[in-house]
Write a protein that binds this DNA or RNA. Structure first.
Length: 216
DNA sequence: ACATTAAGTGATT
DNA sequence: AATCACTTAATGT
């Protein structure tokens, strides 16, 4: 179990530049730690959240899911970020409209939505942090919409692989073609064929359960 | 050696 | 670009 001092140090490291010290120590007091494994589902569609996660280490994938279990990747949340949208879901008692999955072993600080609400009035830096988080998420959403609307699947696939590589800091992407197809809401066969084309063009090399990008 | 899962392929819509 | 039906390759037991 992490001590209060540990939590405060981690918060300081990630958010010390944006949040005032008083708030950092208050957060450290209240926060519960959650450690996740790779591919662990943190939020299901329909969940009613009471705690909002702030990502300290690792990264989270946020996706839409329909009633058939078909998915579409929306955006990622990285260290120091939170999903400000879940704040509204919490306080307005709306069921989660998204699914959140850990992309790697991650460390989350879970904080009750009530406090976050109070901090909005109490700390200017918190308000700025939340609004800026909203903005970031919004920009990322637009990027996803652009990709879906204006890019061909082959371009979108390459972008997906590069985003993935950047995020995890490795050119090796440990996914099956099926998993890639799920994220892009396509089918395995189509993805396999497009990947083959990328391999022929020399952009990537293919292996079982692994796709290696030649360059970012 | 056998079963299971991942990936490749041709044909059809 | 998706789906079907089938093959081949890689891996686990």
């Amino acid at each position: 179990m992490l001590s209060l001092v540990d939590k405060e140090a981690m918060l300081q490291a990630q958010l010390g530049y944006v949040l005032e010290p008083a708030l950092i120590s208050e957060m450290a007091q209240l926060a519960k730690i959650r450690e996740t494994t790779t591919d662990e589902i943190i939020v299901h569609v329909g969940d009613r959240l009471q705690l909002i996660p702030i990502v300290i280490e690792g990264s989270i994938k946020v996706s839409r899911e329909n009633e058939n279990g078909e998915e579409l990747l929306l955006y990622y949340i990285e260290g120091g970020d939170t999903c400000a949208m879940s704040l509204q879901c919490c306080t307005k008692k709306i069921d989660s409209q998204i699914k959140a999955t850990a992309m790697e072993p991650s460390l989350l600080l879970m904080i009750s939505a009530e406090y976050m609400e109070i901090w909005m009035d109490q700390y200017k830096s918190w308000r700025t942090y939340i609004i800026s988080n909203y903005h970031t998420r919004m920009m990322e959403l637009m990027e996803s919409i652009d990709a879906i609307a204006f890019m061909n699947l082959d371009q979108r696939l390459l972008k997906y692989l590069r985003d993935q590589a950047k995020l995890l800091g490795s050119l090796e992407i440990l996914h099956t073609h099926q998993q890639v197809a799920d994220d892009l809401h396509s089918s395995r066969v189509v993805i396999s064929r497009l990947l083959k084309q990328l391999e022929i063009k020399g952009e990537i090399s293919l292996h079982r359960n692994k796709i290696i990008l030649k360059t970012i």
